[in-house]
Amino acid sequence: MLELFGTSVNLAPIWLTLEVAAITTVVLLLLGTPLAWWMAKMRSSNKVVLEALVALPLVLPPTVLGFYLLIIFNPTGPVTEFLRFFGFEGQLTFSKTGLVIGSVFYSLPFAVQPLMHAFEAIPQRLLDAASTLRASFLDRFFTIVVPLSQRGFLVAATLAFAHTVGEFGVVLMVGGNIPGQTRMVSIDIFDHVESLEYDQAHILSAMMLIFSLCVLMLVYGLNRRFGVKVG
């Protein structure tokens, strides 16, 4: 609990939100990097399909995505069965794991698109030159691609993180609003508004607003200085 302007604000949802956003960002960078690389190098017309699929969460209303997740996450559903195969126990809905998986889907375009654009901007001749010097793929990736796409990684990470922090529909649908486990800050604000506790809502909203503004300024600042394409 924190006292601000005479109103006590529970900070637990904020910490949970930051934790889920951080884990989601790491997962997205790990999964998004190979996916973005693959898409950047793709020459076939299938690329269009893949690009559209990745961008889907941008246009789908989060509550729709959340409702589908509710269906495919259910304890007898395909995703849970698949994870059981790897020794997963428990249930995806109403758990932090479920929140992270949902957020990974939801924030996918925000990580993959900047990475893809960064990878596309790397001159092929640099990679070819390295190949002639017998640099292995991993060698080329870590000594050429990663340093040249630094800003792309930074933008991808920032946007993925910020977007997950601001997420509402998906976590609302699959989370179950359990205090300390799945009650994230956006839901907390919604609850305060619904129960007419406008003071708490104002404070949390102001925190979110300032945070988002800072993140966006950071991203646009990076854009200006280094010319990284976003979105």
């Binding site: 509710l70 259910n74 304890p75 559903g77 809905t93 109403f94 179950g176 609003n177 359990i178």
Partner: peptide, 19 residues
């Protein structure tokens, strides 16, 4: 074991979808 739907419609969805 309680899970909270945001509204009664949402609580109903939890049950209908078997979650």
């Amino acid at each position: 074991k309680l899970v909270n739907g945001e509204s009664i419609a949402h609580a109903f969805q939890y049950v209908v979808t078997n979650n």
